[in-house]
Amino acid sequence: MPLPQDERTTVQMFTRFAQPARFFALADRIAPWLWGLVILGLAVGLPWALIFVQPDYQQGDTVRIMYVHVPAAWMAMFVYASMAIASFVALVWRHPLAEIAAVASAPIGAAFTFCALVTGSLWGKPMWGTYWEWDGRMTSVLILFFIYLAHIALSQAFEDPAQGRRIANIFALVGVLILPIIKFSVEWWNTLHQSASVFRMDGPTIEPSMLWPLLIMGLTFQVLYFALLIVRMHSEMAAVRLRSSRLALMRREQTSEAVAS
C-alpha cells in the first residue's frame, strides 16, 4: 500500500468522522431508556410466554418456543433490511455513520438468525420429528445466516478497513434478494414450515391470546437490536479512530526520523 493513499484516507477519516459526535451524544442519551424497555419487555413477555399462555391443544408446551423463535426470525430479516438500507445510504451519499451502522449490524443480524435456526430446530424435533429438513424456509434462512457471516468476513478482509466496509456494503445490497425469497419460501416450496400467520394480507390468523405476548416479545427484540446497535457502533467507531491515530503516529515517526537524519 503506497503511503500517499494512506495519508489521503487518514485525512478523510478525520474530517468524515468529525460530525458523528452529535449522533453518539444523542444515542447515549437514548440508550438507557432502550435497555429499560428491554428489561420491561422481558419482565412482561417472558412470564406471559412461559407461564400464562395455555399449552396448545396440538403442540402442548412446545408452542412456547414460538415466543423466541418468531421474534428472532423477524429480527433476522429486519436487521438485514436495515443493513441494506444503511449500505445504500453509505454507498450513495458516502455517509460515514451509515457505513458504520451497516457493519455494526451484521453480527447482531447473524446472532438473531442463529437463534431462529436453533430454536426452529429444537421446535421441529418434537413437532415434525426432525431437527432439520432442506425445506424452502429453513434453507433460505440458513443462506441468510451465511450471507451475514460472509458480510462480516468481507468487511475485515481488506488491509484498508474503509475499502472493506465499502465492498461489504455492496455485497449487502446484492444479498437483499434473499429477503423476498425467505418471505415467499413458505408459499413457493410448501414442504414443512407453516405459512405466515401474523403478517398476512387478510390479517393475523393466530389466536389473539397468543398474538399479544408474541408482539411484546417481538417489540422487545426490536428495541434490543437498537440498544445493541449503539454499543456496536461505538465499537466500530473506536476501531476507525484507533486506526487513524495509529497511522498518524506512524507518519509522525517517519517524518521525525527523516528530520533527524
Partner: peptide, 21 residues
C-alpha cells in the same frame, strides 16, 4: 409437559447468544 429440553433449550440458546453478543 415433557418438552423441557426443547423449550428450556431454546430459551437458553437465545439468552446465551444475545447475552454473549
Amino acid at each position: 409437559g415433557g418438552y423441557a429440553a426443547y423449550v428450556w433449550g431454546s430459551y437458553l440458546v437465545v439468552a446465551l447468544v444475545l447475552g454473549g453478543l
